[in-house]
Design a protein around this nucleic acid. Structure first.
Lengths: 120, 120
DNA sequence: CCTTGACCTGAAGCTGCTTGAGGGCGGTAT
DNA sequence: ATACCGCCCTCAAGCAGCTTCAGGTCAAGG
């Protein structure tokens, strides 16, 4: 697969993929004869997973650690599972925060409605 | 109120409050005789709202625009309401994205379980 | 008096991308 | 053949949004 296609699927910009590779998050992408990156389906899948982790707030450093586990092969699956579970737990906390924020906004909107209603 | 208290309530670091003020997000904070910021309850409330907006992904530029409306007084309440509604709509999209990411992670976790199970 | 602690300012540093400059390679139109 | 186009490449600089650091002021307390 070409980078444009992977970019499309993973929802990452091409530049971001470059950047992730530079940062050691996808150590294994090989090149075609023309020097262009040639992504295997596994590479693409991996980038999609990275994208999900990033989008849900995992910091780069942690992603790098996770990538190192991935690069080390199947022996690390248990560790990777633990990492994802921990991450998911934090996602839940984050979601609670978002709920709190949303309720603050909703309250504010009600206030605005009162003001507008009072003037109508 | 002192800055430490507001920081506590709004969930923003003191430095972030400084930064927001520098960035024109809270134009009106007055000073005590000692030169320290003296926050009114309204200031504190405003910062809490800013914190909610920021935490839910509103970019600085947009927050600045919103702050300008706030500074312009009650005449802008309708515009502010529209802004918050638009923002809430984007929050909903964002939440959908998060759900998609979460399901990717869940699928990955299942895969890991299969691998671990197969080897147990 | 002298330290402690909460605050102040201004500038530099950090993370996670994005943008820009400059270039190569392959295909098609002239 | 050559000129142009689109997609890719690299390296470096820029940007958003904070955080951290260095150096300083003032007020209260031992």
């Amino acid at each position: 697969m070409k980078i444009a296609e992977v970019s499309q699927i993973a929802g990452l910009s091409i530049s971001t993929i470059h950047y992730y590779e530079r940062s050691g998050l996808c150590p294994l992408v090989s090149r075609g004869a023309d020097g262009h990156r040639a992504f295997s389906p596994a590479d693409c899948d991996w980038l999609l997973l990275l994208a999900s982790l990033r989008a849900t707030g995992m910091p780069m450093a942690e992603m790098r650690a996770f990538a190192d586990l991935y690069a080390a092969g199947e022996a690390t699956v248990a560790e990777r599972k633990a990492a994802l579970l921990a991450h998911r737990a934090r996602m839940d906390e984050r979601r609670a925060e978002l709920d709190a924020c949303q309720s603050i906004l909703t309250r504010k909107l009600k206030r605005y409605d009162e003001i507008l209603g009072g003037r109508a």
